[in-house]
Design a protein around this nucleic acid. Structure first.
Lengths: 198, 198
DNA sequence: CAGATAAGTCTCCGAGCGTATACTTCCGTC
DNA sequence: GACGGAAGTATACGCTCGGAGACTTATCTG
């Protein structure tokens, strides 16, 4: 599977555009194959350049991965402010989760990268920090009540599991399910996790 | 991390014992590093033999992986008969899940192997079949009602997510949580998923 | 137009991978 | 007690990986 340049290839010499193209290609490759599975040459080909240029721009594969990770954890897809402020938080989260873990849709790159790369301790460490500082604390402050930490963790685990089962393993029961059905199933589950009942 | 022979090394020449030792070592290695990440030499060292012997016994790395997968999917850790026949199915499942996804405990090798190897399409295919034929249908026939498929799928996703978050990423909220708290949190969630309320 | 400098490429290296062939060492059998 | 075959090893191959240094080419400035 040799990656062809997907994003607009910078035929004109343009450092910023090239750098961005490499970053985008790396993000795609890491999400698809994980840290070890993605090769520098493949990433470079996806950006329309040679492998050495990648190292020239980012120093090493590790630093490139760190930049991709930092780039990825900038956009909160599910725990976005509008979802967190929705009148029915549980329903909003359920809808967002179902939409964003849909089999086709280009999705939580961050999660995929994390999961695919979890073999290497370095990637796991980065991912732990990403989840901890980002999503865990965000969700935690949104739900309140006893066992907030654990409740938020279970919700994140549920999201992660859906991601895994719908996009990585692609078990038919979830990959082919009608979004409305999944939403109906998930809303009460999430509600019971985030609402303390007060 | 060079693996030392862990299981009783077959110093005497014993084909069956050696084969079993290789299989056990391979299972450990695949669970830790995934299909691509685990090397034949590492697996061999873990069994106290040389790499070539692995291929002599199993033909190739792929066939070895297939045998490990088949071996792994034999024991239903969570969806065991006794759990499925428990008076309170939801509570039994919650307890089993919490116990088996505990950070330290040697766990769902199958899940870990699947997740770590999901980059390679071959491993994902094997895992899909494993889940489909094994756990999905088992759980499905235990819960009944509308949307059985989807309900079972969500439960499996939840289990997978807990596994991921507690043992791969090890987010503190779940890795350090008290088992009793997690059980209390999960029981109603699972109950609402597997009981139709008929 | 010339040249400086950034942008990008070519070629090579050492290491590790899976695996094939040829070899050595032990054990059970007659 | 020799020996045939099984158990296990040694060495090497072709390949791909991440990375290093020298090289070429385009763009901008004077």
């Amino acid at each position: 599977m040799t990656a062809e340049p997907v994003s607009a290839a910078p035929h004109r010499r343009n450092a910023a555009a090239t750098r961005a193209a490499i970053l985008a290609s790396a993000r795609r490759a890491f999400a698809r194959s994980g840290y070890d599975g993605a090769g520098l040459r493949e990433i470079a080909a996806g950006a329309g350049v040679t492998a050495m240029l990648v190292n020239r721009y980012f120093g090493s594969k590790q630093q490139l991965f760190a930049e991709v990770a930092a780039d990825t954890m900038r956009d909160p897809v599910i725990l976005s402010p509008e979802n967190l402020d929705a009148p029915d938080l549980a329903a909003a989260l359920a809808r967002a989760v179902v939409r964003v873990t849909a089999p086709g849709a280009t999705p939580l790159d961050g999660f995929l990268i994390l999961l695919h790369s979890a073999s290497s301790p370095k990637a796991a460490e980065i991912g732990r920090e990403w989840i901890g500082r980002g999503h865990q604390s965000t969700l935690e402050s949104a739900i309140g009540g006893l066992l907030r930490r654990e409740r938020a963790g279970v919700v994140l685990a549920l999201i992660a599991g859906l991601q895994v089962m719908r996009q990585m393993v692609e078990i038919p029961a979830l990959a082919d399910a009608k979004p409305a059905d999944l939403e109906a199933l998930l809303t009460p589950v999430i509600r019971s996790l985030i609402e303390t009942g007060d």
